[in-house]
Simulated scan of single mutants.
Amino acid sequence: MISYTEALDKILAEVRVYQDELVSLSESLGRVLSTDVEADRDYPPFHRSAMDGFAINSQGYSPNQIYPYHRELPAGMSMDLEPNELAIRIMTGAPVPEGLDVVIKIEDATLSESNGQKQVSFSTKEIKPWFNISKRGEDLQTGDLVLPKGIQIGTSEFSLLASLGKEKVSVVKAPKVHIISTGNEVIPIHQSPLPYQIRDSNSYTITSILSKYKIQPESVTHAPDLESEITEQIQKGLEADILILSGGVSMGSLDLVPSILQRLGVELIFHKTAIKPGKPIWFGKRKNTVVFGMPGNPFSVQTCSRIFLEPFLRKSYGQNQLPSYKLPFSATKQRKGSLTEFFPVRFETTDKTYLAPTTFNGSGDVRAGVFSDGLAVFPSELSQIQRGDIVDFLPW
């Protein structure tokens, strides 16, 4: 039985590189960039006024000096200075004409009129060149790297790509995924369970993890603990890039999945890890298909999806792994075995932020992950965690 870190290393060693595809910008939200994105021009593309006010030249400025003006420049237009023109009224976002290098906001201006001539003076005591002006190229210059490949497109990236005129975006093509939930006791969620039956939540847990990466499973099926039916479903599932099963991987007489997988030519990479929950996890491959055989208990599936499946997806997409954090624990917890334990915790803030354990009655507890912020790690080499001890934390 291998350790958690050994298991994760073996899983990440089997990462597949998926193809690229072009999608419209409107379809790209949540997808992962497959190529670097560079600036198509300078940003701002011109010296841009950062204020509503007046544009003047900084040379020779003194407070309360009178500046005649007669023109106004809104955003979306440009103008050249006329001979002897010393000031213009300007709006936020407008290009500052060449020859002017300061914008004084309207709140610091005093407007007046003399003999039909508009004029303005300013109370600002000191100014310097480019005061209240965003200089051309100060954000980005043509050819600058804007977004590296491997970035997941969120709201900020989505907006930025629109600013760059990216009508089409090159993203990583989503892998084909098949999900199989096994077990005689498992029924679809729309059916009323008998006392000895449970509804299938595992396929929904796995689907939720996939949806974070805009992966829609090609099929989600259920197979009872019958060798013929499990074999049929696995044969179909092995046509996918990723096959994910839940249940049937432990040591019971009806835990048929491992023997069926190997009979169908799936190479075993490991079976069982020294963790709790999730100890019976099975992992293997056949040609271009990787296979995750997860335990059947709901929280085992949620934990294994977070610590094994999600890192695999992120590396396949060229993304950095989700960070882990070190935070103090708010209680005392005793070891109940020799395995590395992952257990649900929530943030608790008093004098500082702690990790507080949530109600947890084992891997079959359907509410185990509810109201938690992630998983705390109880290393196998420790016998207890005391209040104030620093523990590793994996956010959901």
Results as ranks from 00 to 15, higher is better:
R16C: 00
V17D: 09
V23D: 06
L29D: 01
Y43P: 01
A50C: 05
M51I: 08
F54W: 11
Q59P: 00
N64I: 00
S78M: 05
E82P: 01
L86N: 12
A87Y: 07
I88C: 07
R89P: 03
R89D: 05
G99W: 12
L111E: 12
Q117C: 08
K125N: 11
I127S: 11
E138S: 14
L140S: 08
L147I: 10
F158N: 10
S163Y: 12
K176N: 14
V177A: 07
H190K: 14
P193F: 13
P195S: 13
N202I: 09
T207D: 02
T207W: 06
L210E: 02
I230D: 00
Q235C: 02
E239Y: 06
L243F: 08
S246P: 01
M251E: 08
G252E: 00
R263E: 09
E267K: 15
I275S: 04
K276C: 06
N288F: 07
V290T: 07
V291L: 12
S300Y: 01
T303A: 12
C304R: 06
C304Y: 02
S305H: 02
R306P: 00
I307P: 00
L322P: 02
L327E: 00
Q334V: 09
R335L: 00
F343N: 08
P357C: 09
N361H: 11
G364D: 06
A368L: 05
A376P: 03
V377S: 04
S383T: 12
I385A: 01
G388K: 12
